[in-house]
């Protein structure tokens, strides 16, 4: 048998998905190299949002709704609360360096424990390196590409002022000005992949987890509002489901079925209604179904 199914509940289907989200008067993802201006592809002017940025939102949503419920803990955290300090600073137990086989076995047990308890490890994977034994790196089934804007974006910088100052000694200085950079409007598209094979053989990512992932993607900006982000909304989540765990069609042929175009090329886009999104459902490859989650 080709299928080495280790987890009973692991997903049996490969998926690909496309997320369309937009930003209005906000900065979807700042570039640390450019003074936190929105990320832009310097050659084409298209806006970018990194994979890790979107994964962060998904983690935050899961943490919020599941609140460290067993099986749905989040491994890579932001310090939003201070209830979790105890455990993580603890130093390592003695690693058995002489016995590589034993160490490997330990790492596998630890790996399974991490996958079972932490949603983000089960979904995206994690680096668990014991030094002597490299087998503890978990490659998760879910992977997301950089999101790219449909059209080149125009970034703007505005100067803002504040009334208060931080230090008394600065009272005389003229330091009450700040900068804020944003995108007036941008519609972005991200593509993602879910490997059933990795779910089955490594992490045990289940159908329930997949359902939760879709929920998290749909809601990833709903609880991420801040001064910097402006209005960010997930407009569409289109999921391609394959009948088999290896898949039934090349992923790029599925992604190409989604066409997003501007309705009026003359005017800059300023809202979602300025775009038309078509999903070509004709002659779908055998064994592939399309589910428009929103």
């Amino acid at each position: 048998m080709e299928n080495v199914k280790k987890f009973e509940n692991a997903i049996g289907n490969r998926y690909e998905f496309v997320v369309l989200f937009d930003v209005e008067n906000g900065n979807p993802n700042g570039d640390p190299d450019a003074g936190n201006m929105p990320r832009v592809d310097a050659e084409t002017g298209h806006g970018l949002v990194t994979d890790v940025c979107l994964k962060r939102k998904i983690r935050n949503y899961i943490e919020l709704v599941k609140n460290d419920e067993p099986g749905y803990k989040i491994f890579i955290k932001e310090v939003l609360n201070d209830k979790l300090e105890q455990a993580y600073l603890e130093k390592s137990l003695t690693d058995n360096k002489k016995d590589a086989k034993g160490a490997k076995n330990n790492a596998l047990i630890a790996r399974d424990f991490m996958c079972e308890n932490y949603f983000d490890v089960r979904t995206f994977g994690a680096v668990m390196n014991t030094g002597d034994c490299k087998c503890g790196i978990v490659r998760g089934p879910v992977q997301i590409n950089f999101a790219k804007s449909i059209d080149p974006i125009a970034t703007q910088e505005i100067t803002i002022t504040r009334m208060a100052i931080t230090n008394q000694k600065d009272a005389d200085k003229d330091n009450a000005m700040g900068k804020k950079s944003f995108v007036p409007y941008g519609l972005y598209k991200a593509e993602g992949f879910v490997s059933a094979a990795l779910a089955q053989s490594v992490t045990g990512f289940s159908d329930d987890d997949a359902e939760l992932l879709w929920q998290a993607i749909i809601n990833m900006f709903e609880h991420d509002h801040s001064a910097a982000r402006g209005k960010m909304v997930v407009r569409k989540l289109i999921v391609f489901k394959h009948d088999s765990f290896l898949g039934n069609a090349p992923s790029h042929t599925l992604f190409e079925r989604i066409k997003v175009k501007r309705i009026d090329d003359e005017m800059p886009a300023r809202r979602y209604a300025d775009y038309q999104v078509d999903v070509d459902l004709n002659n779908l490859p055998n064994g592939v179904t399309v589910d428009e989650k929103i």
């Binding site: 130093k91 137990l93 690693d95 330990n106 790492a107 668990m128």
Partner: peptide
Amino acid sequence: VAKLGSIKKAM
């Protein structure tokens, strides 16, 4: 990176 020892302790 995750440390095996810390995971063991947590387990």
